[in-house]
Design a protein around this nucleic acid. Sequence first.
DNA 1: CGAAGGATTGAAAAGGGTCAACAATGGTGG
DNA 2: CCACCATTGTTGACCCTTTTCAATCCTTCG
Lengths: 234, 234
Amino acid sequence: MLTQSLTTSVPATLGNLANKGPYPAAATDQFCVVTAHAGLIATEFSYKKDEEIYGEGESADYVYQVIRGAVRSYKLLSDGRRQIGAFHLPGDVFGLESGASHRLTTEAIVDTTVRLVKRRGLEQAAETDVRVARNLWAMTSGDLRHAEDHMLLLGRKTAMERVATFLLEMDRRLAITEMMALPMCRRDIADYLGLTLETVSRTLSQLQSQGVLGFSGARQIVLRNRQCLRNMDA
Amino acid sequence: MLTQSLTTSVPATLGNLANKGPYPAAATDQFCVVTAHAGLIATEFSYKKDEEIYGEGESADYVYQVIRGAVRSYKLLSDGRRQIGAFHLPGDVFGLESGASHRLTTEAIVDTTVRLVKRRGLEQAAETDVRVARNLWAMTSGDLRHAEDHMLLLGRKTAMERVATFLLEMDRRLAITEMMALPMCRRDIADYLGLTLETVSRTLSQLQSQGVLGFSGARQIVLRNRQCLRNMDA
DNA sequence: CGAAGGATTGAAAAGGGTCAACAATGGTGG
DNA sequence: CCACCATTGTTGACCCTTTTCAATCCTTCG
């Protein structure tokens, strides 16, 4: 019942930042339930555009939730090739680890504010409250689901299918109005989709010429034919 | 202390099947601790080569551990393109979900025996024993780590780098002696690495001609120069 | 207003995919 | 026990998608 009242009070704090769709909504509620219930201190902190939040291999002492802005988490190969595993948008929780250290690097894509809580505190709460433990597991499981879907994209989808999937994901996660305001540049999109930035640009141009989408500046996109994108998404 | 005695008794049942390396070893112990401690009934079951164990979307009522054989778990696109997310070898746990249903399909690669326990039972155990809850989370977190590594491979590595990574992973996980006996065919390897079977075959041939590895039949491989593979693996 | 980063577009190259033929393997039944 | 045949794997030739390299065009912001 405490859980219930907390869950329903979530929109009060996060309503204007809320995401649509199954993934982030679930994570958002879970994080709030967990932190509020456990009475943990959630500090706010801000990062400038391109500032690193934590690096791969660093000790995982905090768990983060995006309040405003956007975050990319990625891995690098020795020669600088980069694979972005996920974008974190307002409401999303990131940096939650079961092990001792972070396995990806995270950076603010634009000026970003996060709420953060001590990992240790969450673990302690999980020891006494099974709901907290359940939620930590569920959040990691949600990340795994996303990774599984993304492996299919990276391993088997064509450039057009990848871009279509990306557009639908972003539409679901950050379209407040008809217009979708992408926080990330073409290179970020490319490194998320396993393509080059030129291929992303070309594919978007092609979709525009087909009337599937429209631009107002490179990062303001309107989807004019979602069904067409869903068909492409394979 | 109960945990301890159970952990140390693990080799008695799983010793001959044991995996080397960090990933599976951890999962193995955790699963045994969890099931033995909770006093859950672990049934054995066998599947013929290519038999489906569960399908994507099916209710996740059981958690599995490979006793002998090998399992592939994958996702399909509508036109049949397949992405294998993981291979499960003796000792590995698979099918563990936090949500209601399985998100990948699993099949036996060869005749395979698994131990299985009711998911419901594990969840109940997790409600009273925080160590069980912690272990369930840790196992899902281990799967996530593998998926994160694999996204980097699928999105950014060359064919040669993918094959090198695969060989080192299999060497770590199933090489008992010098010889490594792959349970899976070239198509399975290709669908795991996001390549075609022809490219996998060509790349392996090239490594053989360079003296990096040797064959005794297509699936019996000896690594003659691991350092060379590690350098390629980027 | 001008510089600098970001995005688009073009042309050429390459890595891996496709299609096809052939070889090896191993399981089965005579 | 051996021979046959289906399955699996290898190799070659060609093709195509995507990458690479380069030039140019936009914006955005000092």
